[in-house]
Design a protein around this nucleic acid. Structure first.
Lengths: 111, 111
DNA sequence: AGATATACCTTGACAGGCGAGGTATCATGT
DNA sequence: ACATGATACCTCGCCTGTCAAGGTATATCT
């Protein structure tokens, strides 16, 4: 069962930043990594992915550069900025809190 | 730190259904319960809450009835339907998967 | 009379996801 | 030579859930 769009909404930027924390990467590769890391349960739609890159770049969370010309289709690489790292740290704290809150709200069992 | 709207988006219906699973309730009370249960970290905005009631009712997840006329402002009670319980069960499974996926995607630590 | 708490409702704007469409390179098969 | 599929990028416009802002009404306390 894939995860619904609304559930993932708002996590897109965080996921991308987390992948970039491990090193510069490009759109297609990030998507493959995400799919592989989740056992195919989740992958960005292309429109979502590239929209997110624009947003993150505009907000100063990432910077972009074209990869060295090699064989194959051109690649646009992205790098996380210091502001991006700060945002990622904040996002991780928020995720921990979200887990706590949602567990309390949807998994409690009582009369 | 409050949890952002986008993060909670899509969980609203689930949270409401989970509260109603414990017994019929009404909007204002549900909101108070949610706020109390999360230590004030989260509460629905009224427009969000009542929009969700309409949506859930339209989808057959809940039914509504006006409370017995007592003192104070009138209350509109909601009850979860069998379809609502099924939806809630599915939502809980999805939440478990979401937890797994997001942990894998934003909390991993490697080079 | 005015403030506060309880309790409900609607309208319109906003933002993120994404379906649908497009472009280009390279390898492989026929 | 041509088709197919994998790699790789991009944009336009729709859809949907959130919520700011506005409104209504009852009961209690000062």
């Amino acid at each position: 069962m894939p995860i619904s769009a609304d559930i993932l909404r708002g996590h897109t930027d965080t996921i991308i930043l987390a992948q970039l924390e491990a090193g510069d990467s490009y759109g297609w590769r990030i998507n493959k990594t995400v799919a592989q890391r989740t056992g195919g349960a989740y992958g960005f739609k292309e429109a979502t992915l590239y929209t997110a890159f624009r947003r993150l770049e505009q907000n100063g969370m990432i910077t972009a550069y074209w990869g060295e010309d090699g064989p194959g289709a051109r690649r646009r690489y992205y790098a996380i900025t210091p502001a991006g790292r700060e945002q990622l740290a904040a996002d991780r704290r928020e995720w921990e809190q979200t887990r706590r809150v949602l567990n309390a709200l949807i998994e409690f069992e009582e009369g």
